[in-house]
Design a protein around this nucleic acid. Structure first.
Length: 203
DNA sequence: TATGCGATATTCT
DNA sequence: GAATATCGCATAG
């Protein structure tokens, strides 16, 4: 299965300049990893925005060794490890010097499904990239990619939509303990690869 | 289908 | 030393 011809690198200037606009914008776009084993790609179907001043953001308490990628300017890949088992993939989302990001929570697998299944033993196709930890494992994205510019020539990049994007809805975010009422989660309505409780993915 | 719980390691306090 | 932007398995309904 080849990458649809319509998928090309996304021009950096198409990125909205604010975090929540970017979180919505990224729904339907393509995440591509040209891994040593082959092409791995998926449609982004679920994101969460963590804008400046958000107490749930890793950048809220200022720059640290871990979160410095969030301060690099729009379009950099912030990867961190959590819960002793999972990597999380984010896109930095504000101008250089301001820490903010968009968490990529779920993909719809497009290309390299067999490789993804090898990476994630015992997972059904639906579960390959449904959830932030799962998508990172399926696409083999780890700490080595922290700081990568997703709009520069490289092996990890953002592409144009592979097909038309469905309706987008919002909800509160998942797995946080602060600013819990903010509706900063975005998802493609009805897509089976969207993660989280069913009740959060309706409307 | 829904809910609950333990595993696990890195970061920050 | 505590907390964590989660996952997968177990159990119950």
């Amino acid at each position: 299965m080849d990458l649809p011809l319509t998928v090309k690198p996304l021009p950096r200037e198409h990125l909205p300049s604010a975090t929540l606009a970017m979180a919505r914008f990224l729904i339907g776009k393509t995440l591509v990893h040209e891994s040593p084993e082959g092409m791995l790609s998926g449609r982004i179907v679920e994101t969460e925005g963590y804008p400046p001043g958000d107490a749930a953001s890793h950048a809220f308490r200022g720059k640290t060794n871990r979160n410095q990628t969030l301060f690099l300017g729009p379009g950099h890949c912030y990867v961190y490890f959590t819960y002793g088992s999972s990597f999380m993939v984010n896109v930095s989302s504000e101008e250089a010097g301001i820490g903010a990001g968009v968490l990529l929570r779920a993909l719809e697998p497009l290309e390299g499904i067999e490789i993804m299944q090898r990476n994630r033993k015992n997972a059904s196709v639906r579960d390959l990239t449904r959830g932030p930890g799962r998508l990172a494992q399926a696409l083999q994205i780890d700490k080595r990619y922290d700081g990568v510019d997703l709009f520069a020539k490289g092996t990890l990049w953002l592409g144009t939509p592979a097909r038309r994007t469905g309706r987008i809805a919002t909800s509160i975010r998942i797995g946080i303990t602060r600013e819990v009422d903010r509706k900063r989660r975005f998802f493609e309505v009805g897509n089976p690869n969207v993660s989280g409780p069913r009740a959060l993915s309706l409307s």
